[in-house]
Design a protein around this nucleic acid. Structure first.
Length: 221
DNA sequence: GACCAGGCACATC
DNA sequence: GATGTGCATGGT
């Protein structure tokens, strides 16, 4: 079976099992971007609490957040963890967004994807996954988002041989899938879903719906 | 109480 | 260039 066929089968199995995921949770591109930063190494339920705190203060707007005292922002996002760190990272992003899009992601619509990615990566606190999440889900660009779950699934199913880096893994998906933004959004969301349920550090593979798809556990077997 | 969560930057070797 | 470590809350 080719990699293309393998990915297609995995996607179809996941979609049949879980259905559409309606990702990213968030009402606006800006909320998606804020969530992308807050969810770094953090459970989404904690991020929701932080975003709700911001909304409760009617502060989910770039200029409002940017002019907020750091201590105030820290207090609002505290449930998301790493709150001092993430307050700085959010501020870095907001400074860039205000300078480049007057605080609105919609104003970046004409910019090309490659340049935007480079600029996002140049912001301290925004790495490849956060940048790509913003590009795919907030800016609707055909970029595949790769995370720890993706890496686990890919190695355990023999799609890629470690060691590999972010770009190699991303390229595996991007060059073996149709360049379909909706597919990219759905596939990544489904991978997170299967990751939460089965593809854990200590995998629960017995009842996994992906069983029977050339599954290996971290190189064992 | 240990483990885990939708990473990233920085220090050190 | 590879590897290790700090960052922090909250759910299971």
């Amino acid at each position: 079976m080719t990699t293309q066929e393998q990915l297609k089968t995995l996607y179809e199995t996941l979609f049949e099992t879980y259905g559409p995921q309606h990702w990213w949770p968030g009402d606006t591109p800006f909320e998606i971007a804020v969530g992308a930063i807050l969810t770094q190494n953090t459970n989404w339920t904690n991020v929701e609490k932080a975003i709700n705190n911001i909304k409760h203060d009617a502060a989910l707007e770039s200029h409002i957040l940017h002019s907020m005292a750091p201590e105030k922002l820290e207090a609002l996002i505290r449930p998301a963890g790493y709150y001092r760190l993430k307050a700085k990272r959010l501020m870095n992003f907001l400074t860039w967004l205000i300078a480049n899009g007057d605080g609105h992601l919609e104003n970046l619509a004409q910019r090309n994807t490659h340049d935007l990615r480079e600029e996002l990566l140049a912001i301290s606190g925004i790495g490849p996954e956060t940048a790509d999440s913003i590009l795919l889900y907030a800016l609707n660009r055909p970029v595949f988002v790769v995370d720890t779950y993706t890496a686990r699934m890919a190695t355990r199913h023999g799609l890629i041989e470690p060691p590999f880096d972010y770009h190699e893994l991303q390229d595996l998906f991007q060059s073996n899938l149709p360049q379909d933004i909706q597919l990219f959004k759905e596939f990544h969301a489904l991978i997170v879903q299967i990751g939460k349920n089965f593809c854990k550090p200590k995998p629960k593979c017995d009842a996994c719906p992906l069983n029977g798809h050339a599954h290996e556990i971290d190189g064992e077997r």
